[in-house]
Write a protein that binds this DNA or RNA. Structure first.
Lengths: 228, 228
DNA sequence: TTATAATACGAGTTAATATTCGCATTTAAT
DNA sequence: ATTAAATGCGAATATTAACTCGTATTATAA
């Protein structure tokens, strides 16, 4: 463990080096999934990528940088999907929208759960430096949503509510990925989460004034299999 | 990082060594809190405890063992408190009991949050070997509770429900300790959790179990784009 | 073509730190 | 008092792996 860790590193300019960066990230992910944290080190990643350690250090200042980049890409993909949904379902009733968002999150976490677990472990290691950009982004998304629907949600502090809802859903999904991966597939799981979120956000007694949605009899939406 | 790690170590027989074990654990906790993970190593712990590394290794086979022991004691204390409450409130209405249990958990996590954070980080590192004894114990407790109150809870799989509730509450509290420690104190936080748990466990519409299940008006949903 | 910048290499250096082991000291039993 | 077991010590050792640097190769520009 020498010193240094100069954060700014060279940016790949030529096609050759850009490709190498991809190969390196791919190798890093594969090692995390197949070999586990203990075998995850820069030398191993370089070897697995069929590249020299020196080359790796041209573009990644430390091994943490590899994890960061992988996490960033993951979070970006997911937030992008969520924003897509909020757009597509902007006119839908709140319960439907929430259920759909949760569905997307479950699906996103069901893909490559092993990699997800590994990234999670490393993320937790660096918790001291606050929530990640991805997490903040996710909470912002929820906050915007609550503000849009302020007529339907009965909550004092929206910012706090955004944190709570987003944290609750995300962390519960994470723990489930880790300990009960199979549950993630079941609709019951998403239903349960949605029920809880709704109960928190909306009045306990839906007030009989609204003749629509009372007991949504398991309106099963066939979820498009989002496998890779 | 030599080899070995023979898990079984000597048990302290004499008073002297039992005291030393305590001093070592205390030092370990203090280092985790004050110095952080990076300074947490067996040599530092021994030094801080005013003890030799060799002595430390007499009773702890590895540095992980220190963390494990600290975590175990923490979990035990908490589960003990929870069991106490379930006893004291065995006659109380479910909502009251749940609210009280959540209160206890929040309070337990509000004590020494720094240490809690550190233990959490290390726990997440070792997730690969399943849930801890303490977590399992907590879920058992919830399961027992659900079975006792089976008349009040409307849930299909009780074992699954115990996992979900216990995980949801615990993980949400954990994340809140890490990112919004102050929220942990507010009643609103506990209220929110309790509301969610109750919504999941009990019928949505307490009174009107009327057969009027109005189909949600068919809602057009566009295909979700999931890949990136 | 040739100059020069970019890229790639990987053995070697260096730091950290987990763990051991032979010896010294204390306690408890007879 | 004698002895054996338990306890304690910490310098020395071993291992791991992060990171560098001098050199070689390849791409681009002139």
């Amino acid at each position: 463990m020498a010193e240094a860790k100069r954060t700014p590193r060279k940016q790949p300019k030529q096609q050759r080096s850009r490709a190498m960066v991809e190969v390196i990230l791919e190798a890093a992910a594969r090692i995390l999934v197949e070999a586990g944290d203990s075998l995850f080190n820069t030398n191993a990643v370089a070897a697995r990528a069929g590249v020299s350690v020196g080359s790796l250090y041209q573009y990644f200042p430390s091994k943490e940088a590899l994890i960061s980049e992988l996490s960033l890409r993951h979070a970006d993909a997911m937030n992008h999907a969520l924003r897509g949904i909020t757009g597509d379902f902007s006119g839908a009733p709140l319960p439907i929208l929430i259920r759909k968002l949760i569905d997307i999150m479950c699906a996103a976490h069901a893909v490559e759960p092993e990699l997800h677990m590994a990234l999670l472990r490393h993320a937790h290691r660096n918790i001291q430096d606050g929530p990640t950009a991805g997490e903040i982004d996710g909470q912002q998304l929820v906050l915007g949503l609550l503000q849009q629907r302020h007529g339907e949600v009965t909550v004092m502090d929206m910012e706090e509510a955004a944190f709570l809802v987003s944290t609750m859903v995300h962390e519960t999904i994470h723990a489930t990925v880790l300990h009960r991966p199979s549950m993630l597939q079941s609709d019951d799981f998403g239903d349960a989460l949605a029920k809880m979120v709704l109960a928190y956000l909306t009045p306990s007694q839906p007030a009989t004034q609204s003749p629509l949605v009372i007991g949504v009899k398991t309106h099963r939406m066939r979820q498009a299999r989002t496998g890779r």
